[in-house]
Design a protein around this nucleic acid. Structure first.
Lengths: 329, 329
DNA sequence: ATGAAAGCGCTAACAC
DNA sequence: GTGTTAGCGCTTTCAT
């Protein structure tokens, strides 16, 4: 592989001029430009990002932290991040933590080591303490899950309101016994969604029963299956279920099916996230859609702004309730 | 951020010694090592990968090309690649081409620009011509989809045999009218799976009927819905379906459901890939499992070997037929 | 409009 | 066991 020296030599100019042509910023005479361009072609020259990055003291890589790539919730967000990044000549390093702190350390080091110019964290299990520390010297944006202290800028939705809307919908179609399949309430979004659930119940003077709230450890299908299994064992069964993720809701539907129960006749079900599979279940799943693509774009834009030393403000985007068969009599 | 110079100064040694401590390769006296380590801690020093990478003329980044991150088929493969990469101190750049040639060019340039040390391509739509050209000067491994010329090393499964097994299973449980929902046959795997389908039919003297072969353009759920819709319009309907991907099979199940048909009683269905959803459908889906995680690990190992200038040989891994409700009377 | 030269942070060959 | 130094490939300031 040829380097800039050889191109300069072949073109009969200095390396500075070649660099100018490459970055077409400064004024280079048309004839000189032509000579250089020809030399580049002849030598099949490609500028090395290694040299350029060292010189510019940047990697043009954005680190994206997700707990697990297999959670379809993240795919559209990542699309948004990726497209925005590329439009600004950045690329993304997709990093799965698997909620493993060691992995996290490796990734944090990549930022300290200048291998990444900034971080978008979507990992609810992230060590917020360490992240805030990192944020002192580096650009970081939180996406979806955030920290209430607002030390680190975030983009998210109003989880409390979204949950309130979902539960209100279940009430409006005639349900009074509404269960909540929530994830671990160490997560902010889980606490917020529970709070929205409680507000809706309170508003309609419906009972809030402990045994109708089930907390899962993970968000896998199997956790939804397990949750529903427990709920169906209760003496007084709920007539509707609000699950805080589609994966949980789909698992719940699966278990209902196994027990010969139909949604919505026996139990109505609402999920959260509008993953693509939620439209393929039987019945199709009513769910709360987050503007995932837009969320990704916004997070990336915020991060790039932050890297370029601009101030960025946290943003809450709008959600939307998508009504499908699982709540349509 | 401190650099290696400042550490050397603070520790009262040369930069070379600091470098030796960092890479703990050469012999450094314990006392000197201690001085350096203390200086590193005091200054909160982190070595810059930018300098190291330029010096070593490597990026320690592996480029992974996939058509779309939203296809769950790739998630486990990526896991395998990622884990293997990290174990060898590499990281991966996950690149979605969306089957967009422009995107592809950007990514190919990243390799030419030394921003990535090698490529694992899982994109069936990749421009093989360009890829082979790139392979002249760079390390490239094909994963899943490959090129028969064997110019570029690959890891895959025996698609013809896998399809043969799937169709033979349908025949064994009593089906004689077996349809194929295939993807575009410009893809090698599609041609190979069709060939396995035909071999099984031929072996049992079953008719090969053109109208029972439907080719989709994509692999989305919706394509499976569409395919099934067409097959159900036929005068002579098939009694079983082999779909070359789970996403297609799930779409087909969905359409059957909409038409009041049950699997396997009305029509038996076999998919391909064993994505996690395939166990959540109703009925659960019989499918051909590829060793996805292992495939990813193998691809990454091959690529890293290739980067280190070792010879690598193409590999075919074993598949497995997973029988579930959609073919169990 | 162009060139000479410094330097980004690191590693390794060579000298002692 | 440790230091000196060249150089990886590039950009940019300062001359001219």
């Amino acid at each position: 592989m040829a380097n800039i020296q050889e191109v300069a030599q072949k073109a009969g100019v200095s390396v500075a001029t070649v660099s100018r042509v490459l970055n077409n910023n400064s004024t280079v005479s048309p004839s000189t430009r032509l000579k250089v361009e020809n030399a580049i072609k002849e030598l099949n020259y490609e500028p090395s990002m290694l040299g350029r990055n060292l010189r510019n003291s940047e990697s043009r890589l954005l680190l994206v932290l997700i707990p697990s790539i297999s959670n379809p919730f993240y795919t559209e967000i990542i699309n948004g991040i990726q497209n925005t990044a590329i439009a600004h000549h950045y690329n993304i390093l997709l990093c799965e933590t698997n909620s493993n702190p060691e992995r996290e350390d490796i990734y944090f080091n990549m930022v300290k080591n200048k291998l990444a110019d900034g971080v978008i964290s979507m990992d609810p299990t992230v060590n917020m303490q360490k992240l805030i520390e990192l944020a002192e010297n580096h650009s970081i944006i939180l996406c979806s899950e955030y920290d209430e202290s607002n030390v680190i800028p975030y983009v998210s939705i109003d989880n409390e309101l979204a949950a309130y809307h979902a539960v209100k919908h279940l009430i409006k179609i005639g349900n009074e016994k509404i269960a909540l399949i929530n994830s671990d309430e160490k997560f902010l979004y889980a606490r917020q969604r529970r709070s929205g659930y409680e507000r809706a119940l309170a508003e309609f003077n419906l009972p809030l029963r402990k045994e109708w709230i089930y907390n899962t450890t993970q968000l896998d299908f199997q956790d939804g299956v397990q949750a529903m299994r427990m709920l169906l064992k209760l003496k007084e069964k709920p007539s509707a279920i609000f699950a805080v993720s589609d994966t949980l809701a789909i698992g719940a539907l699966k278990e209902m099916n196994a027990s010969g129960l139909k949604a919505p006749d026996d139990i109505a079900v609402v999920g959260f996230d509008n993953i693509s599979f939620s439209n393929m279940t039987n019945p199709t799943l009513t769910t709360v859609a987050q503007p995932m693509y837009k969320m990704g774009c916004t997070a990336a834009t915020m991060l790039i702004n932050s890297i370029h030393e601009n101030k960025v403000e946290s943003i809450l985007l709008d959600h939307e309730l998508i009504i499908r068969e699982s709540t349509m009599g």
